[in-house]
């Protein structure tokens, strides 16, 4: 067994381990649905609070905040459920379990981040700093996507960079613009990835 053969064996092991921890189970239709809900969220927010309060988020009342919390919890659940539905459907087609040790590890590793984001959102809303919430969400989602990158591939790294850039921009612009950034992040990016997946023909795979 010469050096080249040993290196080939080691390369095979490295490639296989990398492939076995790669999680590419989010189907294009899941992305598309999340994108649609991601666009609906900012639109509903604007409709609920109106142009005046969008320009002056410090005028938002407790009732407005509760209504917004309801909308966004609904949006999050709808996006999550639709993605889970399409993931389960794809897994069934492939005769795989959608919920396996890897998906559990990915999901559980992100729970603390989601919890911290929820705590910070409540705190900011409590201190009347609602205008910062969209940027906070974009930044946190960027962090989550960065962690996904270690399980998936470079596409999540790219998404992560875009979300962090949008979040950073969101800290510097007025509230109505942060809603547009939110729509660009959770709406357009997911739609673009969904369409790209459909064009690549990932839906049937």
């Amino acid at each position: 067994m010469d050096q080249a053969q040993i290196e080939q064996d080691l390369q095979l092991i490295k490639r296989t381990i990398k492939a076995s921890v790669r999680y590419t189970n989010i189907p294009p239709l899941g992305y598309l649905c999340s994108g649609i809900f991601g666009l609906a969220g900012p639109a509903l927010t604007y409709l609920i609070i109106g142009a005046d309060k969008a320009g002056h988020p410090d005028l938002l009342t407790r009732t407005d905040l509760l209504a917004l919390a309801g909308v966004w919890i609904g949006i999050m659940l709808a996006a999550l459920c639709s993605s889970a539905f399409f993931m389960a459907r794809r897994a069934r087609k492939r005769k795989q379990a959608a919920w396996n040790s890897l998906s559990a590890r990915i999901f559980l590793s992100q729970l603390p981040v989601l919890l911290v984001a929820a705590i910070l959102t409540s705190a900011l809303a409590g201190y009347g700093l609602v205008a910062m919430v969209p940027a906070l969400w974009l930044l946190f989602w960027g962090l989550i996507l960065f962690s996904f990158f270690f399980f998936t591939g470079t596409e999540h790294l790219l998404q992560s960079i875009i979300f962090i850039a949008l979040g950073t921009a969101g800290l510097l612009v007025p509230f109505p613009v942060t809603l547009l950034l939110l729509a660009a992040g959770f709406g357009l990016i997911n739609l673009v990835w969904g369409i790209a997946g459909l064009v690549r023909g990932d839906a049937g795979k």
Binding site: L12, I13, T16, I17, A19, S20, V21, R94, K95, Q96, A97, N100, S101, L102
Partner: peptide, 12 residues
């Protein structure tokens, strides 16, 4: 190698 990384895998 794949099983060492994941512990458990389905056939597919």
């Amino acid at each position: 190698a794949a099983l060492a990384a994941r512990g458990k895998l389905s056939f597919s």
